[in-house]
Design a binder for these strands. Structure first.
Lengths: 318, 318
DNA sequence: CTGAAAGCGCTAACAG
DNA sequence: CTGTTAGCGCTTTCAG
């Protein structure tokens, strides 16, 4: 491993001069700069990033906390982050938690030990109170709205979005509406969905709320639950927490020869390929943009709150 | 930022002793170990990873080179890598190249500057000859078969897979078969598809070969190309390079009221949700397993070649 | 069992 | 413009 002093010795200059040309400082004579560059090239030398980071105290590396690494929604945000990072010469490290509080804390402390310059939280397991102390060590930005002034966020107004979605369904004549969510009531997003539902429809029949839906199969199973079992009044519409889940529901409905949208209207989320394939209406939360914005906030160490707009994409499933 | 000597001073021991308890060395008296641990906890101290990595010469960090960060196939391999990395306490950094040779080289030199312990190449832009010199600085493993002894690989026998797929179509009575690929003939995978095609069908009519297909829309466009324009003999079957692309083709065909599989048989790849939604047959290359194996090889610094089996999933589209 | 001291490879005053 | 030198925070001989 050739290092900076090898280069200095061979080039017949001091390490500082080598360091200067490495970092494009001025005040290096053309002669020396030339020769140093020549030696660097000849020796195929690259500075050791650990040493540089150690002394500089920053790594140009940002971590993205995602609960699951195989979920379309989190993937979209991750993609947004990666998109921007390529331009800005940052590296992105994927931090999967499976919603483990310990794991999440472990990742957060990567800020403390100077491994990461910043962290983007797409979805969290711990309370803000336990997360906030870590902002002392690096920039933390959230993809979920928060009023805590220590945390920047690029967010979608989920409550409004859910209200709009349910209202849209209601306007289309649906009064019996079911919905799926990923996690249960430990999730803010689920809480907001429920609140939005109640706002639009008044009460919420237990059987219309189907948690634990992540993937296609979960949607299919949700269909079975809703129509195969003892649900008193069958819903006429369902709002799924993603197009993949919506796809599973669609599949189930078609397997029972139900007509979409006449027998069952389906509204998905995130405007994914499976949705366009099946011609499913979807509310597009523009998660890629969320990721992109989150990245920008992180590198700028900004604590601003930026709202990303959503839009309902109307197709034939409603 | 409290550091190791702060801890040492407060605990009334030397830095070496602190270092020893940090690294679970034996030969530390219970008394001192206790007090050091107490101080560490009180001070909320975490070792600086840069300093540790600098002196150890390793980072427990692995990079994954992917051309695009929004392509289902690469995502699957990435997910496999991440799955395993969580267990093994490694961090994964995503390295998107867009097939730029320069960018790829830049990433490769992260091995040289001790930033990454290893690199997994899901798809490469440079020749093996230019990549191999970097194996001197860290473990490089490929997700594509290679005989170069310096490189380990977790691969699928693509040529056999393509031959099987085309033969399967032929056995089902299809003689006029078109296919899509991601890149053009600069890609080994495309070359293999073409070779497999010729092996099974003899020649390859130009118009049956449709490159530059990545996403749903590309599949739709491929359908337009094939059926909307002056293709002399319409194909009766098409082998798509992914279920998303297959989905686009399906969508196009249905928009023209074609019957699947009678008017057009469709075979996809990777067994993705969109494929099960549309009931598309698919050859599953088990890319997640490829990623998992690639990870194992990388941390073991192994140069073995491990073949991952594929399987054709029969559904109603053929 | 413990501490002093020598680095790991680099940057940034500081003094010429 | 250039070199000397003192660290960054940690691990690891090497002597006790």
């Amino acid at each position: 491993m050739t290092n900076i002093s090898d280069i200095a010795r061979i080039a017949g200059v001091s390490v500082s001069t080598v360091s200067r040309v490495l970092n494009n400082h001025k005040y290096v004579s053309e002669d020396k700069r030339k020769i140093v560059q020549k030696v660097i090239k000849e020796m195929n030398y690259t500075p050791n990033k650990n040493a540089v980071d150690l002394i500089r105290g920053e790594t140009k590396m940002i971590g993205v906390i995602i609960p699951y690494n195989n979920n379309q929604a989190f993937d979209q945000m991750l993609h947004g982050v990666i998109n921007k990072s390529v331009e800005k010469d940052y590296s992105i490290t994927v931090l999967a938690t499976k919603y483990s509080k310990e794991k999440e804390l472990e990742y957060l402390s990567m800020l403390k030990n100077k491994w990461l310059d910043g962290i983007i939280i797409t979805s969290r397991a711990n309370s803000w109170e336990t997360i906030i102390p870590y902002t002392e060590y690096g920039s933390i930005v959230s993809c979920e709205y928060t009023t805590h002034s220590e945390i920047g966020c690029a967010y979608i107004d989920r409550f409004s979005s859910y209200v709009d979605a349910f209202q849209y369904l209601k306007d289309k004549g649906h009064e019996k509406v079911a919905f799926t969510t990923a996690r249960g009531t430990e999730s803010i997003s689920t809480e907001q969905t429920i609140a939005a539902y109640k706002r639009v429809f008044g009460g919420l029949p237990d059987e219309y709320y189907l948690p634990n839906c992540f993937r296609f199969e979960d949607g299919y199973y949700a269909g079975e639950q809703l129509f195969g079992r003892a649900v008193k009044t069958k819903p006429t519409a369902i709002y799924a927490n993603g197009d993949e889940v919506a796809g599973g529901i669609y599949k189930y409905a078609r397997s029972k020869n139900m007509n979409i949208p006449n027998d069952l209207a389906i509204l998905g989320q995130e405007n994914q390929p499976i949705g366009v394939a099946l011609d499913l209406s979807s509310v597009d939360h523009q998660l890629i943009k969320v990721g992109e914005q989150a990245f920008e906030l992180t590198v700028q160490k900004s604590r601003r709150n930026i709202e990303i707009p959503y839009k309902i994409i109307e197709r034939s499933s409603i």
